[in-house]
Write a protein that binds this DNA or RNA. Structure first.
Length: 468
RNA sequence: GGUGACGUAGCCAAGUGGUAAGGCAGGGGCCUGCAAAGCCCUCAUUCGGCGGUUCGACUCCGCCCGUCACCUCCA
């Protein structure tokens, strides 16, 4: 039996114990990137939440089928391709490749499916036809619209009262004509210079919301367990997905809706105009460690705004380093033959607290807090009586569990003997220290420091590693 | 105008009725030839403000102040 986990479901606004429709198997859909540019750290915050969600479910014993869509047809991708005079496919291929590079850099696990909207045109058309059969659509100027008035439950996710939607400047920003400003387009009639598909709906292209409903149902079924996105997706995107999907099938679309809060930068909304807009590439070019970025972005529970600051990034880097330092110390300290400086039950209690945090609507801050408490205990034990082989095994399993879920454990670096030249210098320094030739010893250390090598003289000999 | 979220130390953040986890930064100390790493001590008599409920509130209720988000294509 998988471990129990609770989520705050946006639909019900309550914390609920999660039960997948199929025992032990979770089907989830994540709203992915629109591939017209490199992803920014705000996008990544949301995607990282989904990655941790996936990993947590797996660690808790569920089988996971995850789908993340790639929106490759919309105003922005069309505009971008046109601006460069390349095909939509060529333009979006490039950013899809970049997207995978970026998530790889942040140690994402791959989802089972990354469907592209343009690969699912027939399914989208079919969905519109079903909606038409059920009387939810109308056509105007060659475009097909969803008539909100035909869907009783419209607004149930966002809590928006359709009659209250303000007829302000931002309403009907779309150039297409509709009967009611609150209706939304399913199929857009083709416009000169834009990609279009010849279908029974006429020449045109899918509207934004349609792809998610069609691809989710094609890959996960008409009803599935979890659908995620960032808070800005709640309305109108997810509200419209519900209308389209349930309008077509008459069945509940999604059981649990989870929405990540936004990331802000230095207390302000991230915006290109404010000069506080960062892609992952921007940060990597500045020399920031991808692991530190990952750590920072998952250190605040997904439902809270995350204030991204460089101070915070430095603190995150220190946190990652502390994990690595402790594990290195552990590896370089011989096991204790016996003793109770650290006992197995403490490690077990840690795992319980760590999992308890995650089981509580993915409380990653609580999980990390537990981890740091464990690290302190390990270091205390290492300074004291040492740690026995048995406890080390438990510890190794616990750390593997942590890494499996959070993906923030630094790789063990340069095992001893991997670099003969450095080993030789370290040996020379050790000899110099023995003969109390500290000038020579320091000279060697300085040279190594300049080469990015950090030395540590421990009671069990000198160990070295590359600076993080 | 509508809907929703939030306000805990210099920064991040846990806690949601029983008297403030953890991390980063800072100060002091131990260890070290010196470092590095690590450890120890220290760092919120107090949880935006004011009332109320209660034996007891950061936690519940009310009001106020402040910050922020969404309201048709922004993760």
């Amino acid at each position: 039996m998988p471990r129990e986990i609770r989520f705050l479901n946006t639909m019900t606004r309550r914390v609920e114990v999660f039960h997948p429709l199929e025992t032990g198997h979770v089907r989830m859909y994540n709203c992915g990137p629109t591939v017209y540019n490199f992803v920014h750290i705000g996008n990544l915050r949301t995607f990282l939440f989904e990655d941790v969600l996936r990993r947590t479910l797996q660690a808790f014993g569920y089988r996971v089928t995850q789908v993340m869509n790639l929106t490759d047809i919309d105003d922005k991708t069309i505009k971008g391709a046109a601006a460069e005079g390349v095909s939509l496919r060529e333009f979006t291929d490039r950013y899809i490749a970049a997207f995978f590079q970026d998530i790889d850099a942040l140690r994402f696990q791959r989802a089972e499916h990354y469907p592209r909207a343009t690969d699912f045109i027939p399914q989208q058309v079919e969905l519109v036809e079903k909606l038409t059969e059920r009387g939810h659509t109308y056509v105007q100027d060659g475009s097909t619209y969803f008539r909100i008035a035909t869907f009783r439950d419209y607004g149930k996710l966002s809590g928006i009262d359709v009659d209250q939607v303000r007829a302000g400047a931002r309403v009907d920003a779309d150039e297409y004509e509709k009967e009611d400003v609150r209706d939304f387009v399913l199929w857009k009639a083709s416009k000169p210079g834009e990609p279009s598909w010849e279908t029974v709906l006429g020449a045109g292209r899918p509207g934004w919301h349609l792809e998610c409903s069609a691809m989710a149902m094609a890959l996960l079924g008409e009803s599935f367990d979890i659908h995620t996105g960032a808070v800005d997706n709640i309305f109108p995107h997810h509200e419209n997905e519900i209308a389209q999907s349930e309008g077509a099938t008459g069945r509940p679309f999604v059981h649990t809706w989870l929405h990540a809060e936004h990331l802000i930068v230095e207390g302000q909304k991230m915006a290109k105009s404010l000069g506080n807009f960062f892609t992952l590439r921007d940060l990597l070019e500045r020399g920031h460690d991808p692991l530190a970025i990952r750590y920072l972005l998952i250190s605040v529970p997904y439902r809270q705004k995350l204030n991204f600051t460089f101070d915070g990034l430095h603190a995150a880097a220190a946190g990652v380093e502390r994990i690595g330092n402790t594990l290195r110390r552990l590896a370089h300290t011989p096991p204790a033959a016996s003793g109770e400086a650290l006992v197995a039950s403490e490690v077990d209690a840690f795992v319980e607290e760590f999992d308890g945090g995650l089981a509580d609507d993915l409380n990653t801050a609580r999980a990390l807090g537990a981890l740091h408490t464990l690290l302190t205990r390990v270091n205390q034990a290492l300074d004291g009586g040492g740690i026995t082989t048995d406890v080390r095994d438990r510890l190794a399993a616990a750390i593997a569990h942590v890494d499996g879920v959070l993906g923030i454990v630094p790789r063990s670096q340069s095992p001893a003997g991997s670099d003969a030249e450095i080993d030789a210098l370290v040996a020379e320094r050790t000899a110099a220290r023995r003969s109390r030739d500290f000038a020579r010893a320091d000279e060697i250390r300085t040279e190594l420091t300049e080469r990015g090598i950090v030395l540590e003289d421990t009671p069990h000999g000198t160990v070295w590693h590359r600076a993080g």
